[in-house]
Computed example of a mutant assay.
Amino acid sequence: MGVPFEALIPYGIMLGMFGITGAGLSKLRHMQNGGKRARHSLDQWDRVMMDRDRRLTGFLRGQTDNSAAPLGFELNNPWRVCFHNLLYMF
């Protein structure tokens, strides 16, 4: 006795939706990385360099071959100051 194909339609829809969602998330991650492949197992050095690249170019994965930093980069300090840290100083 065969299985009625109507019983398999919901499973096909669910499988299709999982495939569409996975492809959409993959494309979104690809676009967020500036068209480059995603990076895995980043250490602190990689994060610092990616933050530097973001401050230089405006993109997290962007890189530049310009030897001179753009105007305003000297004022673009990566150190963050929190208000509660200032209270402990005084």
Results as ranks from 00 to 15, higher is better:
R29A: 14
G62F: 09
L86N: 09
R52A: 13
G34I: 07
W45K: 15
I20L: 04
R80N: 09
G58C: 03
D53Y: 05
G35C: 03
M1K: 12
P78F: 01
R61G: 02
G24F: 12
I9A: 01
A69G: 07
F83Y: 07
H84F: 10
G24C: 08
V3N: 06
F59I: 11
Q32W: 06
R55V: 12
T57I: 04
G34T: 07
V81P: 00
G35A: 02
M50S: 09
Q44W: 07
I20R: 01
V48A: 03
W45T: 15
N76A: 08
F18P: 04
M1V: 15
L75R: 09
L8G: 04
P10L: 10
N85I: 13
L25E: 12
G72C: 04
W45H: 15
N85F: 05
R55M: 09
G62T: 07
V81N: 00
Y88K: 14
H40M: 13
R80I: 14
H84T: 14
G22V: 09
D51G: 10
D65E: 04
P70R: 02
I9F: 05
L71K: 15
I13R: 08
F59R: 14
R39V: 13
G12A: 08
T64R: 00
V81F: 01
W45F: 14
G34P: 05
M31W: 06
R52E: 10
Q44A: 13
F59E: 06
A23E: 05
F73H: 04
Y11W: 03
R61H: 14
T21R: 03
F90D: 04
F5S: 12
S67M: 08
